[in-house]
Design a protein around this nucleic acid. Sequence first.
RNA 1: GUGGCCAUAGUUCAAUGGUAGAACACUGGUCUGUGGCACCAGUUACGAGGGUUCGAUUCCCUCUGGCCACCCCA
Length: 466
Amino acid sequence: MQKKPEAPKKTLAAPVKPVAQDPIVPPKRAVQPIQLVRGMRDLLSPDAAYWKQSQDLARSLAATYGYDWIETPIVEETALFIRGVGKATDIVEKELYSWETQGGEHVSLRPECTASIVRAYIQHGMLNLPQPVKLWYSGPMFRHDRPQAGRFRQFYQVGFECLGEADAVIDAQLVIVSWNFLKELGIDATVRINSIGTPESRLNYKNALISYFRTKRNRLSEDDKRRLLKNPLRLLDSKDPNMVELKAEAPQIIDWLDEESKAHFMHVLEYLDEVGIPYQLDPYLVRGLDYYTKTVFELYANSMDQELAQSALGGGGRYDGLVELLGGRPTPAAGFAIGLDRVVSRLKELNPPTESERQVDVFLAQLGEMGRKKAVALFESFRQANIPVGEALAKASIKAQMEMANKRGAKYAIIIGQKEVLDGTAVIRDMDSGTQEIVDGKKVVHEIKKKLGLLTNESKSAGAAH
RNA sequence: GUGGCCAUAGUUCAAUGGUAGAACACUGGUCUGUGGCACCAGUUACGAGGGUUCGAUUCCCUCUGGCCACCCCA
């Protein structure tokens, strides 16, 4: 190859008159590629196995623990979340995707699913079903938060909710299920658990906390002063080093629980002890949603190297007041949700993806137009026989096809060229040994079945009778 | 939402005030009858807009997106 292009380029360039009538320079690209919307992402095929693994496990746990499938809409009336999650929470205050529809409805993308489940429970009269009603869900949630690793604006949760039963054993079993979920995926996690009592006892505690911190007001950071006014419970998980000291002296919620909540919490812990679930009592654990009562818990990944910021994998608790708050009859309930995005990234770290691309046992290679035609038909025969076969029908070179066969880990390559078509045969190549045999073209599927050990005794004789 | 760092081929990374290279990947060839090797060739990028400048991918501003910390949580 000479450098011929030089000349034509110049001759082409010369006659172009710099008319410059249109100042718009032809763009390098026809159109600009469009970026992802902030905080959104594509889930791609190489990760499919991890998603499937966790979703399958959720499904099977649901079956064994007796949870029924439910899927609620992604869009709900905004009021559901304002009432359900709580007006003063971060989720509602600054993370809600809300808009007004053409019809004037005020709707939002769900930031979590519990409120929707409760709405469905009320709406479908599930209180008439045998109690408790146990439901599980899996799907995308949306929060307009600042994205970071492990934090997306559309993220996926799988959750279990148990409505209509107040007993502490429910709380315990929910912790057990969520723990088992992570455990069976091979994720080492810690349960942190606490009780925040009834709304009344919590209010008393809140007041005690406020008066305690008021006396230390001058030692609080601006941030913490704001929290003291807005959500004093949040002061407890402040990371300000100053707070560690102040916290130690602060009243603890445990001491402010009513007798019933205290007993309830003790029962929950006893059940957990019985099953041997490791947990940490965390007197500072208060969840960011208003609806929780009594038991609250969170699951954290135990990271091996450095402490990851986004290590919260899930959480849940009891929400005895929520059904009533959303217009149903007073109904006790509890549940949890686990963040699949973080679980999947954890799984991926734990079991790095293997190099294996789409593996097939058999690869079908063809040569020449006649061979290709035959191969198209033969591929269909394999499909009917339910045997996955790789192909590159659009490729002409046998070499390229053999490369592909190798890349996809095929044990056998079937080769059909001009010659085979004329003879009514096919070549089967053993990719490991490199040996080849010529078989009757009509029996290729049968031969491959035999080699792959897919023949039962019956089909063996059936194949022979053919 | 606040603050900081960052943005170059599909990916991981270079270089440069005079419009860009490598590796891997991809496509083709050596080789219309055979893969795991080798060699050769080729395609593909300065996130967007504005400013400074004779000239900007490089400097400045804005936007967009990513990462980190906070906030909060999954």
